[in-house]
Design a protein around this nucleic acid. Structure first.
Length: 183
DNA sequence: CAACTAACGTAATCAGAGA
DNA sequence: TCTCTGATTACGTTAGTTG
């Protein structure tokens, strides 16, 4: 199995997912793909996932972090205004602009059924910030991938702000839409 | 310990399916 | 068409790994 040194991290309910440590060969593969296209679509990501053995959502995270790196400045910033930057001299000094990026295919929209949604809503009301364990459990129970659960919570948090204690819960006569309540 | 960087947060936006 | 909501992005922060 994996020579993971950290295996005693399964006690924190809010704990994040175990941090992945890339092998040199995996890093090379990703870096090569990044140079060809910093915005890989779902097809490319899954291909890379197969090649490297890394989960697709981790590939996506890797690309996002990689894109941000040259733009982000370290908190130390070094403050030295040298007129040259090592490791970024040759190649394309131009930043990637969205217009220049070919629209890669997105992941197909996942259809989340009513019962799956109810389960997620129930969990959301218990905790808006499920840790990795809770996400895995929800993935098990709903049959949805962990990454979709993660996105669902992100969207839910963004669209359903925290209800004030004094704010009326969505009682009757508030949302005439969803007529089907519960079985 | 300091630098590097995977994981994860928000906010904004794009995009698919149903009313 | 509009609404609801899943997918993706930029940007910022947190915390594990490594020199």
């Amino acid at each position: 199995m994996g020579p993971t040194s950290a295996s005693s991290r399964s006690q924190n309910p809010r704990g994040p997912r175990e941090r992945l440590v890339l092998k040199a060969s995996q890093r090379e593969t990703l870096q090569a793909a990044f140079e060809q296209n910093p915005y890989p679509g779902i097809t490319t990501r899954e291909e890379l996932a197969r090649e490297t053995g890394i989960a697709e959502d981790r590939i996506q995270t890797w690309f996002a972090n990689r894109r941000a790196r040259p733009l982000r400045k370290s908190r130390s910033a070094s403050a030295q205004a040298s007129e040259e930057e090592p490791s970024q001299g040759q190649g394309e000094p131009q930043p990637w602009s969205p217009e220049n990026v070919p629209k890669a295919a997105r992941r197909k929209r996942t259809a989340i059924s009513r019962w799956q949604t109810s389960l997620l809503v129930e969990a959301f009301e218990k905790s808006r910030y499920p840790g990795n364990e809770a996400k895995e459990e929800l993935a098990q129970r709903t049959g949805l991938p962990r990454s979709r659960i993660h996105v669902w919570f992100q969207n839910r948090r963004a669209r359903k702000p925290v209800q004030s204690a004094s704010a009326p819960p969505k009682s009757l006569a508030d949302s005439p839409t969803h007529a089907a309540t519960l079985p």
